[in-house]
């Protein structure tokens, strides 16, 4: 049976490569992103690859007031909801966020406040239908605050904590919550970046995420080695960690 899937932030490279797995097996997709031209291209690609239904919606997910209607429209267009995949987010500019609290707030708004608003609606909808999977892109950066990206990291730590609590609440109602923590990924934006030979291939990452969502994993690191790396990073005592340059 074709699954009914809502993709928020559909033009992000990781979201796109996850959605290609769904398109190939003929699922129904409702795609939301900010940039109309990019969204149209991604929609055409997923339709060509075999999605049985593709509808696109241009929206800025920072605008929380839009959320209830946007989500209701999506569920209506899909004729139900099996999976909601939240993949929108910004890396932000750490240096700017250190100087300017408004820049820091903007990162937290996009990466934390916006998904919390969406997930509140989606979780209540899924609990009511006693069915559904809520899959959210968090990050390994949320596992421990680091000097080089702690504003981004704290927004991801926030969403990871929120998802843990949400899972604890809705699991018994037949609703799954999947926390996805990618490590550095080789996307068009990181090609040629120093050390990117070691980054994960985005198409492999997309496939791994689709598999984790299918099997309703609680929390998944992609690639899997990051579970071990982050366990070690978390184990370093703060008295030592604060002196490192990471």
């Amino acid at each position: 049976m074709a699954k009914k899937i809502l993709v928020l932030g559909a033009t992000s490279s990781i979201a796109e490569h996850t959605a290609r797995v769904w398109a190939k097996r003929g699922d129904s997709l409702y795609l939301v992103a900010r940039n109309a031209e990019k969204l149209a291209t991604v929609g055409a690609d997923l339709k060509t690859r075999g999605a049985s239904f593709v509808e696109t919606k241009v929206a800025d997910l920072d605008d929380l007031d839009l959320h209830p209607q946007l989500l209701a429209e999506a569920v209506t267009a899909l004729g139900g909801l099996d999976i909601a995949y939240l993949a929108h987010g910004v890396l932000g500019d750490q240096a700017e966020a250190e100087r300017d609290a408004i820049a820091a707030e903007a990162i937290l708004h996009t990466n934390f406040v916006s998904p919390v608003s969406l997930l509140t609606w989606l979780a209540n909808f899924c609990v009511k239908q006693k069915h559904g999977t809520l899959a959210v892109l968090s990050s390994v950066a949320g596992d421990r605050g680091r000097k080089s990206n702690y504003v981004y990291g704290s927004s991801k730590a926030g969403i990871s904590a929120f998802l843990g609590g949400l899972r604890n609440r809705v699991d018994r109602e037949g609703v799954s919550v999947v926390t996805i923590k990618p490590g550095p990924v080789k996307t068009p934006m990181t090609a040629g970046m120093e050390g990117n030979e070691k980054f994960a291939d985005v198409s492999t990452v997309g496939k791994n995420i689709a598999r984790a969502i299918d099997s309703r994993r609680d929390e998944v690191y992609v690639p899997g080695k990051w579970r071990i790396i982050m366990a070690i990073v978390r184990a370093v005592p703060e008295s030592i960690f604060k002196k490192t340059n990471t």
Binding site: S13, T41, V42, A44, D45, T48, R49, P188, A191, G192
Partner: peptide, 12 residues
């Protein structure tokens, strides 16, 4: 100009 990121199928 690395073009491999433009990897979408547009129509068949």
């Amino acid at each position: 100009l690395v073009m491999t990121g433009l990897d979408r199928l547009l129509h068949f």
